[in-house]
Amino acid sequence: MNYTITLKVNGRTVQRDVPAHLTLLEFIRSGLQLTGTKHGCGNGECGACTVIMDGKAVRACLILAVEANGCAVETIEGLVESPLAPFAGELPGAVTGTGHSHPEINGASPVGEGVGAGLHPIQRAFLAKGAVQCGFCTPGMIMAAKALYDRNPNPDRAAVVEALGGHLCRCTGYQPIIDAVLAVQTE
């Protein structure tokens, strides 16, 4: 049996019929074809499926799609602020507080002027700090960071660690990700 649900996804109202067993993650990926949200484990242990629901970071694999009826959901696809805006210029520069002098990624974009326009500051910080490798944990990490900044514009390191706790990354060793999330406020 199917249930009609109406929810806002990235600001747009969508209405669909879904079976009870469908998770919010399956609904977002298969039903809405928003594949930026990733399926890493299916039981809430990895964080790759993190989306923001009614202002809070949640794990989409642990929520039934029917439960999201009437909710507002934000996914990674909703983050780019203004796709048509001019290229925002240099990526963010050096950040204090890591205790080391790390080489910074220089401003030159390998993809050229104007591309990447309108990226959210968190996305730009991830690029600037080398916080992206395979990219599979990245959307979940960024959404967790976004939820953090939405409620706390000046998080300290402990708040960042708390917000990213339970988000697994096997590529970066986490340090560049923490640096990136902290770098957002210095932008």
Binding site: T35, T75, V80, S109, L119, L127, A128, P139
Partner: peptide, 24 residues
């Protein structure tokens, strides 16, 4: 010798990068 930005960075921070399970 330069720390240039990754070629695949923007695709990966926007969720645009396609992995196998994203393909139908």
């Amino acid at each position: 010798g330069q720390s240039v930005a990754r070629l695949d960075g923007i695709e990966k921070v926007t969720g645009e990068a396609v992995f196998v399970d994203d393909i139908s």
